[in-house]
Design a protein around this nucleic acid. Structure first.
Lengths: 141, 141
DNA sequence: ATAATCCTTCCAGTTGCTGGAAGGTCAAGG
DNA sequence: CCTTGACCTTCCAGCAACTGGAAGGATTAT
C-alpha cells in the first residue's frame, strides 16, 4: 500500500507519515520503485499514533506506548501509569488556564471599553496598579 | 542600563530581550562600546511584554497591545476586544482539555492496572473496540 | 596582568509538523 | 510513442518563542 492510501486509512497527512518514519515511529518497506510500502502492522501503528496524538500524548510518549503496544507481555499497570501522568498534566494545564482566565476577565470587567483612551487593561499590563495622574516625569520626547 | 540589569528589572531572560529586539519589539540605543543601552521607556516595554506574555498573549498580540499602549488616543474598546478574544480562546482550550481528560480518565478507570498484559487503554489506542472510526478530517486535501 | 564577569554576534536546536522545489514513476488518452 | 497529470521521492525552509553554546570583545576586580 502506497503512502497516499496509508494516509487515508490512518487519518494522518502524508507529510506526517514521512515525518514519523524520519523519527523512527514506523518503518515501512520499500517497493522496487522506491515507494514506501505499508503493510497491515504499519497501518495499525499509524492509527495508533493518530489516536494517541489526538489524545494529547507527546511523540515520546507515543513511542513508549507503541513499545508497550508491541510487547505482548507488558503489564497494563505500565500503560495506566503513563495515562495517569498525562491526566495529571492535563489537570495542571486546566488549572493554569482557569487562573489565567480569571485575571483576564477581571481586567475586562474593569475596562469600560469605549472610545476613551483610559484603559485598566493597559494600565495593568504596564504595571500601574493604581494609575492616578500619569505624570510624564520620565522626559518622554 | 545594560542588558543584564534590564533583565533583572523586567524579569525577562537576557536571551529573550535580545530576541525581542531581533523581532522589533524593543529598540534600545547602543553605547559607544556596542552594548545595548536601555532607558526607562524600554524598561516599561519590557515589563509590559513580560506581563502580557505571562497572561498568554502571543507575540503578535503583544505587538498590537504595545502599539495601543503607545497610542495616547487609542480607545479602550480596542484593548478590551483583544482581551475578550483571548478569553474566548482560553475557554476553548479549557473545553478541549476537559473533554480530553474525560476520555483519559474513562480509559484509566477501565484499565485494571496490574501485571496482566490485557489493557483497555492500549486496546482503545489500537482501535480494537471501536474500529469503525475513519477520520476524514485530516486536512490533507 | 590576569581572571572573572559582562557583553556582542551568529548558529543550531527545541516540538511536531507543514509547505514548496526539483525531480522520478505510473496509468490513461490521443 | 508521447504527453498529461497524479502520485511518489528527497531535501530545504519555516512556524512559535525562545534557549543553549561557541567565539570573541569590553569592563571590572584583584
Amino acid at each position: 500500500m502506497n503512502i497516499g492510501e496509508a494516509s487515508e486509512h490512518s487519518g494522518l497527512p502524508v507529510k506526517t507519515i514521512r515525518y514519523y518514519e524520519d523519527i523512527g515511529l514506523v518503518r515501512p518497506l520499500r517497493s522496487e520503485n522506491g515507494y514506501r510500502d505499508f503493510v497491515d502492522t504499519d497501518l495499525q501503528r499509524l492509527k495508533f499514533l493518530q489516536r494517541a496524538r489526538s489524545l494529547g500524548f507527546s511523540i515520546e510518549e507515543c513511542r513508549e506506548l507503541l513499545s508497550l503496544y508491541q510487547d505482548r507481555n507488558r503489564a497494563s499497570a505500565d500503560v495506566k501509569a503513563i495515562t495517569h501522568a498525562k491526566i495529571r498534566e492535563v489537570d495542571r494545564k486546566i488549572e493554569e488556564l482557569r487562573s489565567l482566565r480569571k485575571v483576564l476577565s477581571e481586567l475586562v470587567t474593569a475596562c469600560h471599553g469605549d472610545d476613551r483612551p483610559d484603559c485598566p487593561i493597559i494600565d495593568d499590563l504596564s504595571g500601574q496598579h493604581d494609575p492616578g495622574q500619569t505624570d510624564e516625569s520620565n522626559g518622554h520626547t
